[in-house]
Design a protein around this nucleic acid. Structure first.
Ligand code: MN
Ligand code: MN
Ligand code: ZN
Ligand code: ZN
Lengths: 139, 139
DNA sequence: GATATAATTAATAAAAATTATTATTTAGGA
DNA sequence: TCCTAAATAATAATTTTTATTAATTATATC
């Protein structure tokens, strides 16, 4: 079984159930996925999995910081495994989302911000190269 | 009537209906608001307004770029009048959202990004001063 | 390895959010 | 003022999310 995922669950004090392993593996495979994509992918491994189980686990996996939500304009939120801070390129044509390393991407000059910063999220919307080439929509 | 809002609707080729004026005025008053907040505020001016009308208009106002969606982790999307690019401070305690000027806030080093950038969105999550002081949640 | 127990799950119902339908009204141009 | 396409209110339908509950299961303790 996905030792990586199993250990991660244990480390975060969550019981290791096949459903959770399946859900996390599905997200890991997809990189970023919304509820429906996770559910669909998870069912290929565990066909009896209930959608309510996906919802509940997404919630607890986020609470325990194992997952991170990525809220996106004009789409359902996607979820990803927690990892190094990074930014996202989001295509307005096809909705695709990809990671982009934040190092050297931008410099935050937060000298004068009077706010306890926990997390900085940079989302860059535009047109991905695939869509730029095709000139057409939805791929 | 809100001449500002009326002209804005005309300029974007949308019919000037009292419902649209009310919706835009509500958002203008609130700064940022989700569907429910818009509906509630709008009803104080126009009690017969239908929720479906709010939904449909939000969609067309976004399509015509009069409004902008602000998708937020763990909350329903908020909407604001289109204005200068800026960033947001979002409190994880109370959910409050406030504008912050992006000028001098960060520098984007986008030399090597091979992507047609249309819009850069920087969301800073953390704890607002009100919540920091109170130490407690939900205000 | 067997047992106890609290957590988790599947199935389902319920609730909340969003979109579609339709008859009526209305904004804006002729 | 009149016409007409667009917009609205009311409502139904659909979709999305959460709650409930009986059965199952992971894990701690023996
Ligand atoms: Mn990512
Ligand atoms: Mn704003
Ligand atoms: Zn694309
Ligand atoms: Zn706060």
């Amino acid at each position: 079984m996905q030792m990586q995922v199993v250990n991660s669950l244990k480390a975060h004090g969550l019981k290791v159930t096949p459903q959770r392993v399946t859900i996390l593996s599905a997200i890991e495979k997809k990189g970023h996925a919304n509820i429906d994509e996770i559910y669909k992918e998870a069912k290929t491994t565990n066909p009896t999995m209930s959608l309510a189980t996906v919802y509940k686990n997404i919630t607890s996996l986020i609470e325990t910081k194992l997952l991170k939500e990525v809220a996106i304009n004009n789409q359902k939120s996607k979820y990803e495994l927690s990892k190094e801070p990074h930014s996202h390129l989001i295509c307005k044509e096809c909705g695709s989302l990809e990671d982009i390393d934040s190092n050297n991407l931008f410099t935050l000059n937060n000298d004068k911000i009077d706010f306890d910063i926990e997390e900085v999220e940079l989302n860059i919307y535009g047109v991905c190269n695939k869509c730029k080439d095709k000139g057409t929509s939805k791929n």
